[in-house]
Design a protein around this nucleic acid. Sequence first.
DNA 1: AGGATGACATTAC
DNA 2: GGTAATGCCATCC
Length: 146
Amino acid sequence: MRQRTADYEEAVLGVVVLIPPAKVLTYGDIAEILEQGGPRQVGAVMSRGPSGIPWWRVIRADGRPPYRLEGLAVGHYRQESTPMRRVPAPPSRTGEPAGYLLDLRLARWNPLPHEQDTLREIRRRLGRSLAGDCPELSEPDDGVDP
DNA sequence: AGGATGACATTAC
DNA sequence: GGTAATGCCATCC
């Protein structure tokens, strides 16, 4: 039940810690790997400020680092030599300082075969907990009534 | 129950 | 190359 979110969070974090230095995944990538939820759900997990994980390796689909954390993230990118390019003009004054974009073509993580196995395992475990958590899904459900 | 919200994504100008 | 409008999916009022 409520466990559902905890399991989802664990799965997301399990994927994030596998991303190697200088590589990144988008929120959507992770949702796709898990085959559960969507980008916003992944974002929701990350927003809880999980500790001890490379949060800066999870970015938006357009290459921007996590909202409001760009300054911090860029430091990590420089340290890891993550393919990044400086964006010329500051977009807008409405909050987005942006100034850096990750080059997703170069920086997106492509899991090796053995890493894909690990990802599959995470996905399977999540699927299991979700299924075992909602027995109603398999319940025949009695008469719907007239 | 219905609507607002969010570390998002895609499509259309 | 940008922004603007829509769609999404789960959570939380």
